[in-house]
């Protein structure tokens, strides 16, 4: 029982490089510098730091995530793993295309059929 919905795309969504907005070729010092800057910006609530892009869309950035990402990239072994997943840059055109929608829902169905009070 190790699979759950939360895991789907977790490795793309929570990739340490994407979180810090860096590429796999960056140096260790860049990781620290960028992380420290993002933490400071998040603390001050600057909108610029509030989101980051991934190949599966835009995600909200939190201080915990930034700290965890820094720790990930400090350790060469985990960094290597994240570097492989980060091989695809977040800005690929495919990432911006929204998912093809299912046919629209009919939200007033329960009201119309008498299962809910209107309004």
């Amino acid at each position: 029982m190790s699979l759950s919905e939360k895991d789907v795309f977790a490795r793309l969504k929570e990739n340490a490089f994407h979180v810090l907005g860096l590429r796999p070729s960056c140096t260790r010092m860049e990781v620290e510098r960028e992380g420290q800057k993002l933490l400071a910006m998040l603390e001050l609530g600057l909108s610029e730091a509030a989101h980051y892009d991934t190949p599966v869309g835009r995600m909200p950035r939190t201080a915990e995530l930034v700290r965890a990402s820094m720790a990930t990239l400090r350790d060469p072994t985990t960094r290597l793993q994240h570097a492989l997943w980060a091989q695809l840059p977040p800005g690929t055109p495919a990432a911006q295309v929204p998912a093809k929608e299912e046919p629209a829902s009919w939200p007033e169905a329960p009201v119309r059929l008498g299962w809910r009070r209107p309004g």
Partner: peptide, 18 residues
């Protein structure tokens, strides 16, 4: 390269219609 290709198809799963 193949890794990026695989990653791209992997990421594309997020947008696959039913």
């Amino acid at each position: 390269d193949r890794l990026a290709r695989a990653l791209e198809l992997h990421a594309a799963l997020a947008r696959v219609p039913a």
